[in-house]
Amino acid sequence: MSLVHQFRSSLARSKTGFIGNLEKLFGSGALSEEFYDELEETLIAGDVGLQTSLKLVGQLKEEVGRLKLKESSEVRNLLLQMLIDLVYSGEAAVEITEQPHVILLVGVNGSGKTTSAAKLANLFCKQGKKVLLVAGDTFRAAAVEQLEIWSERAGVDLIKQQSGSDPSALFFDAINAAQARSVDIVIGDTAGRLHNKYNLMEELNKIYRVIGRNMAGAPHEVLLVIDATTGQNAVNQARSFNETLPLTGLILAKLDGTARGGIVIGIQDALKIPVRYVGTGEKIEDLIPFNAADFVHALLET
């Protein structure tokens, strides 16, 4: 099921979407201020953010004038294309280049790191790769047990240490183990941390450095997991995490609710960090590579 379809079914109860409403707003053939107001509101309601929304509406206005567009379908396509251009940045899925290819998941508390780690492990496992999960959240109570249960379900190996132990040391060992066992992909879970906590961010930076010291070039991917319901604070999150360790992409979790995750447009606009995967449910297979076109349709179809 594509993202758009999932959205259609989950949002069946919401009012007519912006795209659906576009004809009516088109009125007598000329685009009214009402159209632009409604577009601005739709974008804001999808958490795109005020600044980015205003910028987008301004650009659309300009382009419509420049191209002298008259047909609603033309404006519709232009708008979709503008948004897609903004969030599309090549192949979304992680490309496996090294052995082991080390992927680190980071994010604030409760964004969905542990679940995403399990889903990613399952995804690669299905592709016939040898995966090693690292239970790097040694802080939260029972986080290790949580990933352990998931790893059994996915049928992948797990490396863990006692709760409360130093995550950097764990990751150091994990790389050694991965090399010894000829693992293809290492997926590291980390403890949730708010991006404004200096010491916790330093700890994360240490994990990053230790991994790099043990294997040159690793971690090859650092993915920030963002809850789709997050508002404008997600931009701060992305900025702070990116300053601590260079992010290579985002996982947009929990997109199966009514939140539309428009904040990734703001993040892409400000920091050029692409979305790689989207979480669409609680089951282990509910993780799909990000599709810009589907995402934009869903954003405007409510």
């Binding site: 804001i44 309601a45 999808g46 958490d47 604030v108 409760g110 809850d227 319901t229 997050t230 508002g231 404008q232 604070n233 997600a234 609710g257 009514t258 939140a259 539309r260 904040i263």
Partner: peptide, 8 residues
């Protein structure tokens, strides 16, 4: 969650 956006 205090970080929740419009969907709250």
């Amino acid at each position: 969650d205090a970080m929740t956006g419009q969907d709250a």
